[in-house]
Structures are given as C-alpha cells and as structure tokens.
Nucleic acid binder design. Structure first.
Lengths: 197, 197
DNA sequence: GATTGATCTGAACGATCGTTCAGTTCTATG
DNA sequence: CATAGAACTGAACGATCGTTCAGATCAATC
C-alpha cells in the first residue's frame, strides 16, 4: 500500500459534509444538486462519491450525526438532583445546543420527509429518545408535586417546541445575551409546567 | 363569446391548488414536479399553465391565500374586553385554525425559503402582522398588570411556537378532543405569560 | 526515485425538470 | 345546429438532475 488511507479524505470529507449542511439548510435538500455541493468544496461532482454512496445517504448521515451529538451532549450535562433543577439544566442546555448549530437544527426539522423510510425510522427513534429525557424530568416533578400538568407528553412537546423556536429569531450580537435568553425562557417554562415561582 | 369564462376552470383551478398543496406538504416544493400535480388532477402538465403563470407563482398564491385566510379569520373572532380573555380567544383560535388546515400550515412553515425574494417579503409582512396581533394583547396585559414578562416580543414568538407545535402530534380521533387540547394549552400559555391562575 | 493506491477529473449516461405551443376537443351561446 | 373561444392534449425545447467510470494526478511509502 502506498498512501495511508484518507490522507486527503479526512480534509475533503468534512468539507463535503459542511457544504452539504449549509446548502441543505439554505435551499432545502431537494433543491440542492450534487454539483452545487461539489462547487462549494472546489471539486467535481463525481469526487463526492468517494465520501457518500449517494445523496440520500449524505442527508441521513448529517441527521444521524446531529442526533448522536445531541444525545451525547445531553448525557454529559451535570445531572441535578431535584426535577426543578434538572428542568432548568435541560432548558438552558437545549437553547444553547440549538443556537450553537442552527443549520443542523434547521435541516433536522425540515428534511425529515426527504429521508427514505428506513432512515426516517432511525431518526425518529433518536428524537423520541431525546423527548423521553425531558418527559422523565416532568414525570418526576409531577410525582413530587413540583410541577402540575394534565399530560406530561403534551407538556414535553410544548416545551420543546417553545424552546426550539428560539432559533427562528435569535441572532448573535443582538440585544440579548445567551444567558438572558436562557433566563427568559426558563421563567416561561417554569410557568408553563406549573412550577412554583 | 361562446363559452362563459371559466366554465371548467372554476372546477379545475381549485383542484390544481388542492393537489399542489397536498403534494407540497408531503414531499416539499422542490421535490414535486408539475407533472405530478397534473397527474393528481387528471390532466396534462401543460394544462396547469391555464391556472398559474409558473410553479413559483403557484406556491406564492397558496401561501398568500393562507395568510389572508388567517388574518381574515382572526379579524372575525369576537373581541373580548380584557387582555386575559383576549389571550384565551387567541390561544383557542390559533389551535383550532391550525388544526383545520394542517397542510397549509406545514407548507407555510417549510417553504418560505423557496419563495422568490419579493414574494418572501410579502408573506413575511403578513406573518409579522399576525404576530403583532398577539403582541398587542400581551402588551395590554402587561400594562394592566395581568401578565408579567420581561420581553413581549419574545413571549409572542414563544407562545406562537408552542401553539403551532400542536400540529406535529395532534391527530383527529386521538384520545384528546379539540377542546381538551385547547384547555391544556391555555393553561400552559397562562403560566408562560405569568397570568394569575 | 519508483511504485502503488487513494483521490480526483471530465465526460458521458438516461431520466426528468419547467415551460411552450400548435393543434384538437369540448361546451355554452346565438 | 353552427360557432367562437375556453380548456386541454401531446410533443417538443434546452437545461439540469444523480450517478458512473476510465483515465489522469497526487502523495506517502519502499
């Protein structure tokens, strides 16, 4: 063997993924051609197939990687004791994590329908796993009397929807710092789940 | 003149719009071809151009029509007196209106980036107008001491995001009736805006 | 410095895209 | 029943799509 494997691919590979993510976020999966991605990387379209078997796999790989990152990052968050503290950790984590990678978040929410059925199932299960993390917190809080809600599943989805909405308006350098945004949303989450203020 | 204008077009026209909306919601604007829309209507692709100058105009027309419907429907809602009652009317209205037309809601949120810039501006302004309706309620409530929040604009977007999230999980015939869903979300909105429970 | 295999080019494949248009079909009117 | 014009067909336009592949190019090893 002459060249050690991936002597270039470990440079081009990430650039392909970065370009694809950026373009998918901006124009949508179906509206972006392999030639556009290649041009962004500075390469011919055929070269992309050294890094992905096809366009569909490229999308799936991006979404799968994002969900794995999300669950891994959450697993490394400090595990607070009582449900109220854990809910605050979750709230601040979700906002920070989402604001750090707006393109991945955007693509993950918009391109689910462009996944092949078997790929969709995988991503959906990972998303469900993340939702279950929050619901477990809410359940524990309800059991202890810290929270009050008629349905923990609905509250879970409502809280996540509210928090994810930050990405639609927040811009770095705006009038609010990350910490201020986290504080505002934490107050609203508290109210929504009936936590004692 | 022989045939009265639109003797068929007033049948085919709405069918074209309905088919386009359904397909755009399911597969995305860029992934749907004019031939697919035509096939759904039972017509050749060329015939579509009796009803829209091009594909882009078809998308814009759907989104514009939806936003007009939304603002018109909200304008006809009973205008309650105090901010708390108005907020409840808004909450219930938003949920009901969105659940009645899930495809239009879905397309309106997903296909904004596929609008030509001048069309995007139009839709964005209409969306802003709708948000302003809610923010006016929140401002009035804060002024009267009914609500408590540090930023009415953020609270506006947070509430809308939370309410719109209903469409991602609600299915007619599920275990919760529309009224039960509206009640649950109204309680959460109350908490989020710091209204006296 | 020769070699070897990863990396990339450049051209090509068939398929499909949005759109146009001459000509056919249909139906409400006179 | 003749007719005028709206509605539609069916074929075609050039462009672009995802993907393939033989051959050129490159850099790390011997």
């Amino acid at each position: 063997m002459a060249r050690t494997q991936g002597s270039h691919s470990d440079i081009t590979g990430p650039r392909v993924r970065a370009a694809a993510l950026r373009l998918f976020a901006r124009h949508g999966f179906a509206a972006v051609s392999m030639r556009q991605i290649a041009a962004e990387v500075g390469v011919q379209a055929g070269a992309l197939y050294n890094y992905t078997p096809d366009k569909q796999s490229l999308l799936f790989s991006l979404l799968k990687g994002h969900m794995d990152d999300l669950l891994a990052a959450w697993a490394e968050e400090p595990s607070a004791q009582d449900p109220v503290a854990r809910l605050e950790v979750f709230t601040r984590f979700h906002i920070r994590f989402n604001l750090e990678r707006p393109e991945a978040i955007f693509v993950s929410y918009m391109e689910l329908r462009n996944l092949a059925p078997e790929n969709f199932t995988v991503i959906e299960q990972l998303r469900r796993a993340y939702e279950d993390e929050l619901e477990a917190i809410l359940r524990a809080g309800v059991a202890r009397g810290d929270f009050e809600m008629p349905d923990t599943k609905i509250a879970t989805l409502a809280v996540i929807a509210m928090l994810t909405g930050v990405n639609t308006w927040y811009r770095t350098g705006g009038r609010l710092s990350l910490d201020e945004v986290q504080q505002i949303y934490w107050d609203m989450v508290c109210g929504a789940v009936g936590a004692r203020g």
